[in-house]
Simulated assay, not measured.
Amino acid sequence: MAEIVSQPVVKGFYIMRLLTAILFLLLSNTVFATPDTFILLRHAEKKEGPNPSLTEAGQARAERLVTLLKDYDIKHIFSSNYNRTLETAKPLSDKLGITVTHYNPRQLSALAAQLSTLKGNIVIVGHSNTTPEMVKLLSGQDVGVSESEFHKVFVVKEKSVTELSSN
């Protein structure tokens, strides 16, 4: 008779262990979540002067980014706090209803650490010097953006870099 009573207790014990293991895995996935894809780009064409806005060509390029990135299921948008980067991010932000988070372009390591805590696909709008540096921090790979290039878009997924064009 004792044997019959102990079988349900043993089964209950194993079921509880299984449920605990499943719960642990689910929570671990949340705690150790990492972004799926980083999309990095330089701001679009800009006017001259201190903290310039975008030119008409730059505004058109910013609008094209919405179409280029439409299938990426963007969850976060980051931009330095300059007119040209914010204006580049604005059409995408407006279309997706995502608030743009400002970052300090002089503290890219801190940004990389912050990004690693997020879940989902992330767009980072930067500059000709910061975008290659962020790609390197996120992937370990070197890329280049010259002062005259505004079309390059870098997609970093699992440390692999793919280059797209916003032309």
Rank of each mutant, 00 (worst) to 15 (best):
S93P: 10
K157C: 05
V5N: 06
L65K: 08
E158M: 04
S28H: 01
A33D: 06
L111W: 03
L164M: 11
L115A: 03
L69T: 12
L26H: 13
I39C: 05
M134P: 00
I39A: 01
Q114L: 10
S6E: 10
M134S: 01
L27M: 13
Y72C: 05
L68G: 11
V143Q: 08
I122F: 02
R106I: 11
F32W: 08
E56C: 05
P91K: 10
M16K: 04
G140K: 13
L118Q: 12
I124P: 05
L92E: 12
L26M: 15
S166L: 03
P132M: 04
I22R: 00
E87V: 09
N129A: 04
T101W: 05
I98C: 07
I77T: 12
K47V: 02
E147F: 01
V125G: 08
P35D: 05
I22C: 09
A110Y: 07
E48K: 09
S93A: 15
A60E: 14
Q114Y: 09
Y82W: 14
L111R: 07
K157W: 03
L68E: 10
H127R: 08
R42C: 02
Q59S: 14
L54Q: 10
N29P: 05
E63W: 02
N29I: 00
V31A: 12
L54Y: 04
V145P: 03
D73H: 15
V153Q: 07
K136H: 12
E56M: 12
V5P: 00
L19Y: 03
A57V: 07
K75D: 14
G144L: 01
S53I: 02
R17W: 13
A33I: 02
K136S: 05
P91H: 12
A113K: 14
S109A: 09
R84M: 08
S116G: 09
V161C: 03
Q107I: 05
E3Q: 02
K11P: 00
L86I: 14
S116Y: 01
F38Q: 00
G97H: 06
L86K: 15
S93Q: 12
A33R: 03
Y82T: 14
V10D: 12
T37Q: 04
V155P: 11
G140P: 10
N167V: 09
V9E: 11
Q114R: 11
I98H: 09
R61C: 08
P91R: 11
K47D: 12
A62L: 04
P132W: 03
G140H: 11
R42L: 01
Q114W: 01
K136D: 06
